[in-house]
Computed example of a mutant assay.
Amino acid sequence: MAARQTFLIIGIFVLAGFDGCFSVIPEEEQHPDFWYVKGKEALHTSLSMTRNMNRAKNLILFLGDGMGISTVTAARVMKGQMEGKTGEESVLAMDTFPHLALSKTYNVDQQMPDSAATATAYLCGVKANYGTLGLSAAARRANCSSAKGNEVKSILHHAKMAGMSVGIVSTARVQHASPAGSYAHTPERGWYSDKELTSEAVSSGCKDIAYQLVHNTDINVILGGGRQYMFPKETVDPEYSTVTGSRKDKTNLVDVWLSSRNNAKYVWNKQDFDAVKEEKTDYLMGKATSSIWRENFHLLH
């Protein structure tokens, strides 16, 4: 990328398992001194901490979708058991962060939240209604007319307006609610392409999420699934002959994105991705089909 500050939002979806229980009690854990020393070490670490007063160059937001306390605990236990231990005593990288906090997760209209309204909360700073994306709680799900005037801007958008480079990377579709919260404003999280738009949405002027990906915030890096939402239904996927685009408006959104940006590159396979010259690329879009992206995401590392 060109010499600019980079603000990167990354969506990572983690699956963790649980592998039974152990009955063997470690010898050292049977003695009080073991725990006293552990406690003193933890206190010493906290008391020795000094504030970092430097200005951050980059901000990276990692999101484990649905990754609450129970999922993190399961991951911690599994990590420890894979190392031959009981599991609970294991430490994840996030456990070592100097500052940690808990936040309440709910929607304005429901106790059990979804990815759209929660993405709106942590990216745009306001609680919202179930199924709505980038809108305040004044909007109603699947009601296009209620969305007008109730749009809220994300931290990614504000960073771009401040002159930073911005990006989203996801193991899901980039039009999925979690990453789309950084750029989209829609009363229905399921409006991935114009194929899903209702007649009310069309008549009221709402745009699908894939369209907004290209036309809303100017995003420098876009990597994830959802390739079919970017192409007309007449377009056969370059990788899977039985898959076609889903757009009804006959618009190739990738071409629209490329034609409106300088030094832009589009890739859909590892060979093209590896061939990208960073110093000559200000914009990068990498797209896979929705069903394949998660399986092949590791190939792009």
Results as ranks from 00 to 15, higher is better:
100 L>C: 07
90 S>P: 06
88 E>D: 10
34 F>R: 09
93 A>N: 14
266 Y>A: 01
123 L>T: 02
142 A>V: 09
262 N>E: 14
289 T>W: 03
81 Q>G: 02
107 N>I: 01
16 A>L: 08
245 G>H: 06
198 T>P: 12
15 L>K: 15
231 F>D: 01
237 D>H: 08
56 A>M: 08
238 P>Q: 09
118 T>A: 06
278 E>Y: 11
93 A>M: 12
178 S>N: 06
196 E>R: 12
223 L>T: 00
127 K>F: 05
115 S>R: 01
116 A>T: 05
59 L>V: 10
111 Q>R: 11
204 S>T: 15
49 M>V: 14
193 S>E: 09
201 A>M: 06
190 G>Q: 05
261 R>G: 05
154 S>L: 07
69 I>A: 11
269 N>D: 07
96 T>P: 03
47 L>C: 12
148 K>T: 14
94 M>G: 08
152 V>L: 06
279 E>P: 03
101 A>C: 06
71 T>D: 13
117 A>V: 05
96 T>R: 12
123 L>F: 04
222 I>C: 04
136 S>Q: 02
273 F>E: 02
189 R>Q: 10
56 A>R: 11
254 V>S: 08
276 V>D: 11
194 D>N: 13
184 A>W: 01
132 T>K: 00
188 E>N: 14
17 G>W: 03
245 G>M: 03
156 L>P: 00
197 L>D: 06
197 L>S: 11
131 G>S: 01
195 K>V: 12
7 F>C: 00
85 K>M: 11
151 E>V: 05
91 V>A: 07
198 T>H: 13
211 Y>M: 12
54 N>P: 00
99 H>F: 11
116 A>Y: 01
17 G>S: 15
